[in-house]
Design a protein around this nucleic acid. Structure first.
Length: 465
RNA sequence: GGCGACAUCGCCAAGUGGUAAGGCAAAGGUCUGCAAAAUCUUCAUCCCCGGUUCGAAUCCGGGUGUCGCCUCCA
């Protein structure tokens, strides 16, 4: 298996620290707001990577932190007029809810920053003891120039940074690029007691401390959005490797950014989409298809038309399963050489830096064979099994039974009412009373219930929107 | 100023030297009272110019255009 490593800017053969095990860490959200569609990409990408490792029989330990103490949270608590605890409680539960709606599997660990204060203090203390950090007026900073490889992940050199970057005015720092490990609390701010007085940890420290605690001081994969490469991940490396004296992470994975109709998404530009708002209108699987149809490292452009296309594409998959009556298989058919070959192709493309776009194409090829009436039924059923197996690796087909039986959103009573109307329409049709037959069909269509006359009788379904 | 990415059918998108995956949409056939759905069929030579090669969307050089990071940010 080859994965692209931001550190070396090359695809590299994946060799885990411990054979058969994968230890991965993804930088999770800061819970000061509902998460947006750009966050969703990171979450979905790492969900699929995790699922694929599990499919390949790796024993995966997946850690994703939740930052629940931060300047933005304090700002939000003032804006909403509630305590910081209430802010984080509110957005953590919203986060978990939205994750579930997106069919994202729960990480094995979701540590909160506030659960790690003691360990962060001890860690910062060690950095200070070894001379990598210094205190200045109640704040503690990491001395960037003490870490000789600073910039190795992002390909930046301190001297280049000095040329163009806007330099933060802060006379307490020895060097403008030194970053905060511990921040002195202002009156009224949440604070913890520490050797440097009351304060809170800086953002860059929690990921190092948590990952070392849960995954060890060298682990396999660390991920996040592209924008975290510098400075956040760079700063993690500086801390982790200063302490450990050996590599912190073996493979760095970064997903590309999401644009909105070609523009960067930002609140001020008004082109800002929350995941939960999009989920109101479109299915989790449409969103998933949209993201997976593009390679995770490339930038992706979001607009409504694309999601509509994605929704239609996913429907295609379900039609195949309905067509073959997947739910009524008495037992799962064995794969023949044909299915095994397609399955192997799937593995090959996923082994090539998680090429989900090609993987998706393979699922669609299987779906096409499911509907291929020239094949014997056992062969078609085997393709259906394959399609579901591979689709699940990509995170599709959760609650398959409900989706295939349409019981999801409709009460049994609604269903029987529709059936009743259909039977009346049958009577009209028998009498060739097209006017009333069409009126029933049109009126149902107006409330998004679509009728289809097939040789087996009239079928109906609720249209997605 | 420094670093980096990208440009493939109407739309989305894969493809890192061997003759263009897949999805959406569209057109035509079958089916239907008419529809819808389903199904079958059809649908690109890869931004421009030059070079390397038996052979290039794929490599090199030069253009043009788009975007990202360097500051909180997934």
């Amino acid at each position: 298996m080859k994965i692209y490593n931001t550190m070396t800017r090359k695809k590299e053969e994946f060799i885990p620290v411990e054979p058969g095990k994968v230890k991965m860490y993804d930088c999770g959200p800061t819970v000061y707001n509902y998460f947006h569609i750009g966050n969703a990409r990171n979450l979905l990408v790492f969900d699929v990577i995790r699922r694929y490792f599990e499919f390949q029989d790796f024993q995966v330990t997946y850690v994703q932190n939740i930052t629940d103490i931060d300047d933005k949270i304090i700002a939000q608590s003032i804006a909403e007029g509630i305590s910081t605890e209430d802010v984080t409680a509110k957005y953590i539960s919203a986060f978990l809810e939205d994750m579930d709606k997106l069919d994202i599997k729960k990480p094995d660990f979701q540590p909160l920053a506030t659960q790690y204060i003691e360990k962060m203090i001890a860690f910062i203390q060690s950095l200070e003891d070894m001379g990598a950090a210094y205190e200045s007026a109640g704040d503690v900073y990491f001395a960037v120039e003490k870490f000789e490889n600073y910039g190795k992940l992002s390909g930046r050199k301190l001297k280049d940074l000095k040329v163009g970057a806007r330099i933060e005015e802060n006379e307490q720092k020895n060097s403008p690029f030194d970053f905060t490990l511990w921040k002195n609390a202002k009156p009224g701010e949440p604070a913890w007691q520490s050797p440097w007085g009351k304060g809170r940890p800086g953002w860059h420290t929690e990921c190092v401390v948590m990952s070392r605690d849960l995954l060890g001081d060298t682990f396999d994969i660390h991920g996040g959005g592209n924008d975290l490469v510098f400075p956040h991940h760079e700063n993690e490396i500086a801390q982790g490797e200063s302490i450990a004296g050996h590599p912190y992470v073996n493979y760095w994975l970064h997903n590309g950014f999401l644009n909105i109709e070609g523009e960067k998404m930002s609140k001020s530009a008004g082109n800002f989409f929350l995941a939960r708002d999009i989920l109101q209108k479109y299915s989790a699987e449409a969103i998933r298809y949209f993201f997976l149809s593009k390679h995770y490292r490339s930038p992706i452009d979001f607009n409504e038309e694309i999601i509509i296309q994605s929704q239609a594409a996913v429907k295609n998959l379900y039609h195949s399963l309905k067509d073959i009556d997947y739910l009524n298989f008495s037992e799962l058919p064995q794969y023949s050489a044909l299915q095994m070959e397609l399955r192997q192709q799937f593995i090959n493309v996923m082994d090539d830096d998680f090429n989900t776009a090609r993987a998706l194409a393979i699922v669609f090829e299987a779906a096409k064979e499911v509907r291929n009436k020239n094949l014997v039924i056992s062969e078609r059923m085997a393709y259906a099994r394959l399609m579901v197996e591979l689709g699940e690796v990509l995170g599709f087909f959760r609650n398959l039974k409900e989706k295939l039986t349409d019981v999801d959103n409709f009460s049994a009573k609604t269903a029987s009412l529709v059936e009743m109307l259909i039977s009346y329409r049958q009577e009209f049709k028998k009498d060739k009373n097209w006017q009333w037959a069409d009126r029933i069909r049109n009126d149902l269509a107006a409330i998004k219930i679509k009728l289809k006359d097939t040789p087996q009788g009239t079928e109906w379904e609720i249209e997605d929107e």
